[in-house]
């Protein structure tokens, strides 16, 4: 039986969410989400340092969805729209949990898994050096992506990244990235 995307969203949300969104990720939608989250973060008594980290990481995640989410499987386009993304933010006793998800073509699963495993294996100092190396030597893609988003998320979150690929069909999987921000 193939993945039920609605059921997955419900189970990822669970209870006690701080902010949730699922739907098409457009530039306007990103603006609205950021505005909403900034206001919510300002309303809780969390330290400014944490508010900035959450906002910064969220910006990268949303823009990753905007630039890199693959199209939605044909049989789901009517229901989910073309550039579907999922965002679930929860406040923890210490820090925040941010889960983001999007469809990817199965060809990318190995590359993404290896990239995240690599980042998880690096020390803070090694992540910093990798960031600086790519910043210095890699050109921006025509879309404006710099290959730095995941590294920046890993650096700022101070925590290992978790990821899941839920197979949908022969072409697509749903990619979920779980970030703990401490």
């Amino acid at each position: 039986m193939s993945l039920d995307i609605n059921q997955l969203y419900v189970s990822v949300c669970g209870s006690d969410t701080f902010f949730t969104f699922r739907g098409e990720i457009t530039s306007e939608r990103i603006n609205a989400i950021l505005e909403d989250i900034e206001a919510k973060l300002a309303n809780i008594s969390s330290e400014v340092r944490m508010q900035k980290k959450v906002y910064n990481i969220l910006v990268e995640c949303l823009q990753n969805l905007y630039h890199h989410a693959d199209t939605v499987p044909v049989d789901l386009i009517e229901q989910l729209g073309n550039n579907y993304g999922m965002v679930v933010l929860k406040k923890l006793d210490k820090g925040f949990s941010l889960k983001v998800g999007n469809f990817v073509v199965n060809d990318k699963v190995k590359f993404l898994s290896e990239k995240i495993e690599k980042l998880n294996s690096l020390s803070a100092e090694a992540l910093k050096e990798m960031y600086k190396f790519i910043l210095t030597y890699q050109k921006l893609s025509p879309k404006g992506g710099g290959g730095l988003g995941l590294i920046d998320i890993a650096r700022k979150s101070n925590h290992h990244l978790k990821y899941y690929f839920y197979p949908y069909d022969d072409t697509y999987s749903f990619y979920e990235l779980d970030i703990i921000i401490v």
């Binding site: 910064n56 823009q63 210095t136 921006l140 992506g145 710099g146």
Partner: peptide
């Protein structure tokens, strides 16, 4: 106050 990684290259 904030800058994203896409801007970080342009700032460089």
């Amino acid at each position: 106050e904030y800058f994203n990684t896409s801007s970080s290259k342009c700032i460089l």
